[in-house]
Structures are given as structure tokens and as C-alpha cells.
Design a protein around this nucleic acid. Structure first.
Length: 462
RNA sequence: GGCGGCGUAGCCAAGCGGCAAAGGCGAGGGACUGCAAAUCCCUUAUUCCCCGGUUCAAAUCCGGGCGCCGCCUCCA
């Protein structure tokens, strides 16, 4: 499989050892509920993880939870609670939201506060090797000590000075230097350190956790494209300054979610909470929406756009459930058509994980299933449905079971259908339509065909 | 200003040098129906923002425009 690597600006073959992919995806800072834009990397890289697993890889998937940070502290002060309480609460809500989007639990979800001693140790080693310096209880990484600084984001160190939009911290030797350790103010959460009480800077946790759980060089490190600079640049600098070895083989950065072309963000105020969107359209519709756009490109969010994705998704379920409700037919010859489609599905994903292309192939398979069913080839229709299930499953899609009813409900519905047939024969169309409409309100669709009426529970994706 | 990305049908969106440009949504016509719904068949880009160039061949490569967006500050 080839993936676009931000570091080299090229597509590269994913080559791993022991058939194991070690991947790290930047997780949330738990100070509030996540908005739907935050969910994009979670869904996209969860899908990548599942796909890799379906191809036989073992994936060790690490996603951190940043549970100590300025915004958490501020929120705690506002609400008169401890930072710990805030973090614990929103961590729980975070996993609740992700579950609703079909995102699986990471192999490991380390919390920053559980790694403070290791972070202190890392900072100490950077200080003693001359890559960091202490001023007044703060410790800064010295970008001048790491010549490769800027190689991920394509930034030259000296550019930073020209910008001058940031007020220059007098304590820093170079404007690009960043905090590894921050002295704490009274009343703030703090940990003892060789430089006095304080707390870790942001970029350090990912380095420490990644090393601890995945090793010094990992296969994939992923996150939103807004993290390229400074976050990932700064991680890379620390890690490689420390070990002298490559930190990450392939850096993956997803495009951001926009609203009318503008980035969705808490500060912009144009965001929607993930759970509200899920409540409105369903988690799988959101997932389908994200996967119908190339992961690296910006994606414009609107309720209409998600609703459209939902219609496409429902088309799939309609076909799946209709085929699965069919009686068993005879044995079917394998459809060469389907084999070719399956190959195209994988080809799309093997080349930079192009999920929109893969979804297009799945929709074609759905169409073939319909045609087979129309032609009376029940086994062909079932084969298409089974393929959609299997291939969709490798992306975490199309796994909802066909809604079933009780035997009693079946009998009652059948009774109503027969009753309605009598009414139709008697040309009592107003009454017949009322039966159909009322059943429709209950989510049961009647389908009149040449061989009588069939019924189905309307596709309602989860 | 620096770095990066994007511009394909009414809308969304694949394609990355060579079958007359996937797929979805929407729209129109037909089959089916008492009328619908679902499904099936057909139609909906001779052309890929514009202008040059390379090539036997370009939406795809190169150069130059125009337009939009992201990052450069916490941010998925």
C-alpha cells in the first residue's frame, strides 16, 4: 500500500516489520465535547486501521488523551471543579461520541498525566545534551541545536523571526524555541521537577508515549493538517534530537472540515458538536460522508451534504437487506464481474487509501445486486450483498444487521397486506392507501409488484 | 510575505500519460402500478478554471495566469 507522506511530499510504500503496523494518531484535549470536525481524523484513521487489519496486518494503534493543558485548567477554574474532574468527564464523553461514529477503541489510550515522570526524564536528557535550556523554571527546546528543524513543515528557522506576529518571549533565545516544561502558577496543577513545580509542555507527551508504546521509530504518525506546524515539527525535533534516529516513517495529515469553505473551529464559532450531528443523521451516515471524500482534501460540511450521504448509504442497506431476505436459491456460479470489482476496490485503497473510489466500486456492486435480483438470480443478488458486507466491513461500514420483526408482527403485517389486497380488488383505494400510509409511518414499506405485494422495513441506517 | 493544497456535469466526487471521463445525489423520459414507493432501462461533461509548451497521445507532465482554501498563534 502506498501512502502520501507529508515529510517527503511523496507517495511511499508502507513497509513494516513483523507484519505489524505501529501507528500513532493525535488524540483530543479533553476540555469540551468534540465537534464534528475533530472527528474526521478519528474516523479516517480508524478506517485505515481496519483496512490494514483486513489485509492481514497486526495494527498497534495508539491515541493519546491530553488531560493536562491550559484550556482544561481554565475550564476547571470556570466551573469550580478540578482539572482532573474535567478531564475525566470529557474523556468519557469522547469515547461515547466515537463509539457512535463506529470508531473502535485504540489499542492504547495513554493519558498525559500518567507519563509526567517520563516527560521530565526526556526534558532532562535534552537539557544535558544541549538541546534545551532552563530559564526561570521554564524549559525550552533550542531549535538552533537541531539543524533539521523545519523539515516536516517546510519552514526555514529564520522565517519565524520575520513573522513577528507573536510577541517575542524575552526568555527565549530564539523566537522558534518552544516550551518543554512550564512553571506553574499558584493554584494550578503541578508536578515537582528539577526546575521546580510545573507541568509538561504540549508536544512532549506524544514523543514519550509513542516511544514507550511503539518504539523509537514508528511506522505511521497521523493527525489533522493543522498539526503539521508547530505540533508535529516540534515532536519530531525532540524525538530525533534525542535518539538521532528517524522518529516516524510516514506522516499522514488529513484535510480539515470546512463550513462554506471556511475551516470549522471552536474559535470561529461555526462548529457543530459531533453528537448533535450524529443525533440528526446517524453515525454511519457521518462516517460514509467522510469516507466519500479523499482524506487529504478539505471537506465542506453542511446538513444537506450529510443528508445526501445518508441517502447513498440507505441505498446500500436497502439492497443488502432485500437480498438477505430472499429465499435460498440454488448454488451460484461465482460472478467474474464481482471479482473484477473487488480488485478495483482494493486498487483504490492500495493507492493512498482513496476511499471515495472504493465507495464508488461498492455502489457499483450494489447496482449489480439489484440487477441480479431483478433478473431472478437470487444467488447472484446474495453474492453481491455478501461482497458489499465483507468489503464495507474492512472500512467499518455496512455492518448493521437486517432489522427483524417477531413472528407475531410478521403475521399481523401479512394480515394487513391481505386486507389491503382485498380493498384494492374492491377498488377501495382510499382505504387501501390508508393501510399503506399507516404502515409507512411505522417504517414499513409496501412494494406492489407483478407477483403481488412484498413488504420491508425501511432502511434506516444507525 | 513564506510554506502547502485545491479548481472535473445542476450538486457531491473518483481519475495522476493512452479503452468515447467511475460512482452517488438531483433532474428528465420509459417499464411496472389504480395512484405511489422501491427496482430496472435510457438520457443528463466530445470535455476536465484560462493561456502557452512537451508528447504520436494530457483532465493527467512543464511554464505562466486567474480564483478559492489551509498553516505560519491554541487548534483534528
Amino acid at each position: 500500500m502506498r501512502l502520501y507522506n507529508t515529510l517527503t511530499r511523496n507517495h511511499e510504500e508502507l513497509v513494516v516489520q513483523d507484519n505489524t503496523v505501529r501507528m500513532y494518531v493525535c488524540g483530543p484535549t479533553v476540555y469540551d465535547l468534540i465537534h464534528i470536525g475533530n472527528a474526521r481524523p478519528m474516523i479516517v484513521f480508524d478506517a485505515l486501521r481496519r483496512y490494514l487489519e483486513s489485509r492481514g496486518y497486526t495494527v498497534i494503534y495508539v491515541q493519546n488523551v491530553t488531560d493536562i493543558e491550559d484550556k482544561i485548567i481554565r475550564r476547571a477554574q470556570e466551573e469550580g471543579r478540578t482539572a482532573e474532574e474535567i478531564a475525566a468527564h470529557y474523556t468519557e464523553e469522547y469515547f461515547r461520541d466515537l463509539a457512535a461514529l463506529g470508531v473502535g477503541r485504540p489499542t492504547h489510550s495513554p493519558r498525559a498525566t500518567a507519563y509526567v515522570p517520563q516527560m521530565i526524564e526526556l526534558v532532562q536528557r535534552l537539557v544535558s545534551s544541549g538541546h534545551a535550556y532552563e530559564v526561570d523554571g521554564d524549559v525550552y527546546f533550542s531549535v538552533a541545536s537541531f539543524p533539521a528543524y523545519g523539515k516536516l513543515s517546510g519552514r526555514v528557522r529564520d522565517d519565524q523571526e520575520a513573522g513577528a506576529r507573536v510577541e517575542v518571549d524575552e526568555k527565549k533565545r530564539h523566537p522558534g524555541d518552544f516550551a518543554l516544561w512550564k512553571r506553574s502558577k499558584p493554584g494550578e496543577p503541578s508536578w515537582p521537577s528539577p526546575w521546580g513545580d510545573g507541568r509538561p509542555g504540549w508536544h512532549t507527551e506524544c514523543v514519550v508515549m509513542s516511544r514507550d508504546l511503539l518504539g523509537e521509530t514508528i511506522d505511521i504518525h497521523a493527525g489533522g493538517s493543522d498539526l503539521i506546524f508547530p505540533h508535529h515539527e516540534n515532536e519530531l525535533a525532540q524525538a530525533e534530537a534525542l535518539t538521532g534516529k528517524p522518529f516516524v516513517r510516514i506522516w499522514l495529515h488529513n484535510g480539515l472540515l470546512t463550513v462554506r469553505g471556511e475551516r470549522m473551529g471552536k474559535s470561529v464559532g461555526n462548529f457543530a458538536y459531533a453528537r448533535d450531528v450524529v443525533a440528526k443523521h446517524g453515525g454511519e451516515a457521518v462516517r460514509y460522508f467522510y469516507l466519500s471524500r479523499d482524506w487529504r482534501k478539505p471537506l465542506d460540511f453542511s446538513d444537506d451534504a450529510v443528508a445526501e450521504a445518508k441517502r447513498a448509504l440507505d441505498r446500500v442497506y436497502d439492497s443488502l437487506w432485500a437480498a438477505e431476505a430472499l429465499p435460498e436459491g440454488g448454488p451460484a456460479a461465482p460472478l467474474r464481474e464481482l471479482e473484477a470489482l473487488e480488485e478495483r476496490f482494493h486498487a483504490a485503497l492500495e493507492e493512498d487509501f482513496t476511499t471515495p473510489g472504493a465507495l464508488g466500486v461498492l455502489q457499483e456492486i450494489v447496482g449489480i445486486g439489484h440487477q441480479r435480483r431483478q433478473a431472478g438470480d437470487l444467488e447472484g443478488a446474495k453474492a453481491a450483498a455478501a461482497l458489499v458486507r465483507r468489503l464495507g466491513g474492512s472500512l467499518g461500514l455496512f455492518q448493521a444487521p437486517r432489522p427483524t420483526t417477531s413472528a407475531l408482527a410478521d403475521d399481523l403485517i401479512r394480515l394487513l397486506v391481505e386486507l389491503r389486497a382485498d380493498l384494492r380488488r374492491a377498488k377501495q383505494f382510499a382505504l387501501a392507501d390508508r393501510v399503506r400510509d399507516k404502515l409507512g409511518e411505522l417504517g414499513i414499506d409496501l412494494r406492489d409488484g407483478p407477483e403481488g405485494t412484498t413488504w420491508a422495513i425501511r432502511a434506516r441506517s444507525p
